[in-house]
Every structure is written in structure tokens, then in C-alpha cells.
Simulated assay, not measured.
Amino acid sequence: MKESVIIPMITRAQVCRELRRLRPSKAAGPDEVSPRLLKVCVLELGDLLQRIVILSLEQGRVLRLWKTSCIIPVLKKPRPGELNDYKPIALTSHIIKTMEWGQRGCENYICGFFQCLQHHPASAPQRETERDRSGLTPGGVDYLTGRPQYVQLRDCRSDTVKFADDTAIVGCIKNGQEEEYRKLIRDFVSWCDSNHLHLNTTKTKEMVVDFVAM
């Protein structure tokens, strides 16, 4: 059974404020929209981007190009000898990054999708949407799925790939019962295999925090 929730909307002033915070020296993402252009044309683009964001929230959809990432391998040492000598840098649309990382307003775009509503301003316009038993609105599900990535090295571009950096799994073990935690790990490994994601076990670490000892 779906339940009605209230999600905040985005105002033109919030969009313009976040666009002005962009760093013009950053490289453009796959949409080829440079942050310099967004910052210079903030007054002309404010209304348009506000309408796009509102439609995205209302329809529960995120533009595919906004979710696309271009992975650029950057050398970590002068003479590389293996893949680990490169650091992957992900370039994504500065428009979606503005909506994701806005500190005082446009964060409501993602908060609305994920039901993190406790931080939105009380005065922000709100509308109702639906969410399922997973706790995510349709937009939240859409935001997490269908995120294509490709690797670009000079003029060479790879096929679509999947990549995730700095993945963390946190589990609570009580009374020495580890089975639930171990099952979580097994399910994650199985999911990665099913989705053609290769885990780098050489960089995988397990950290145990003992609250009793603390």
C-alpha cells in the first residue's frame, strides 16, 4: 500500500544561488554544459532550470544525461605500471551536482526523492507524492537506477561500464551473532556478480568497533 508524503519544491532564488557557487574552472560533464556558462547565464537559466527540476520531482524521473558519468583516469605516479596507478575521476553534469550538493536550498531536490525532509525550510513550497514500502518515492528509485558510465582516455571512449568508488557496508553485531552481518556481505557480493561489478579485494578492509571496550 502506497502512502502519501510531502516533498519540498525548489524556488528560482534557490536555483540561482547554487548556480552562482559553481567553480568555473571545473571540467564539464557528459552533457557538455560548462559551469562557467551556468554561472554567467544564471539569470537567463534560473526560470528554465527551476521548471525542469519541478517537473523532475512531479514525474519522479531524473534526466538520464544528468545521471551519466564520464570516468577520466588520472595518473597517480609518473611511470604507471598497472591500473591501480591511475585514479578514476568521475565527471557528471554540474546541474545535477548543484541540486545534490546545495547546502541551503537545492538539497531539497534529492531530499524530496529520499524522504529526508527534516532539513528543508519550513517556508518552502510543498507538494504531495507517493512512496512505496521501500521508503523511496518513484523519483528516488529512478535516481538510483539506470546510471550509465563510460571511460574516456584522450580520444578513446569505452563502452558503458559500471563503477563505484569508496563503497562501505555497516552492520551491527550484538551478542556475537554475526550471521546477519555475514549474510549482508554475501548478498552484496552476489548483487555485484549479477550486475557485472568486479570487487577490488586487495583494497577491501574490515574494521571492527567495540563499543563495550570504548
Rank of each mutant, 00 (worst) to 15 (best):
F163R: 08
I173L: 04
L37V: 12
L45E: 08
P73R: 11
V170N: 11
A90N: 10
D166G: 06
L136A: 02
I6V: 03
K39L: 05
M9V: 01
L22A: 01
V170L: 14
V62T: 15
Q126H: 10
R79D: 15
K162G: 15
H119L: 02
Y143W: 14
K97P: 02
C16L: 12
D142H: 08
C172K: 11
E82P: 04
A168F: 05
K183M: 12
I89Y: 06
T11V: 04
A164L: 11
T204K: 12
K76M: 10
D47S: 15
D132P: 00
R147C: 13
Q103D: 11
C192N: 09
V208S: 05
S93T: 07
L38E: 03
L57V: 13
G139Q: 02
T98E: 02
V141I: 14
L49H: 04
V15Y: 00
P121V: 04
V170W: 09
S93Q: 05
K97I: 00
R20I: 00
R20P: 00
D210Q: 13
H120V: 06
T145N: 11
R12S: 09
P24D: 07
H196F: 04
G105T: 06
K162M: 08
Y143I: 07
Y143K: 04
G140R: 02
R154A: 08
G46Y: 09
H119M: 00
M99H: 05
L19K: 02
S25C: 09
Q118E: 15
I185R: 05
K26Q: 07
N84V: 07
C156Q: 12
S158A: 10
L65M: 14
G176L: 06
Y86I: 09
Q115I: 04
I71W: 10
Q115K: 05
L91S: 09
F163L: 15
V212W: 04
L22K: 07
F188M: 12
K183L: 14
Q118A: 09
G112T: 02
I96Q: 03
Q115Y: 03
T202W: 06
T201V: 15
I52R: 03
T98Y: 01
R12M: 08
R154T: 11
G176Y: 02
G135K: 02
V74E: 12
A28G: 07
Q126T: 12
E206Q: 09
A164V: 08
I185C: 15
E82L: 01
S56Y: 10
Y150H: 13
F188W: 14
T11Q: 12
L19V: 08
E107S: 09
W191K: 02
E82M: 09
V208E: 04
K97M: 06
L19H: 00
P8S: 13
P125E: 05
V212S: 13
R61S: 05
P125R: 10
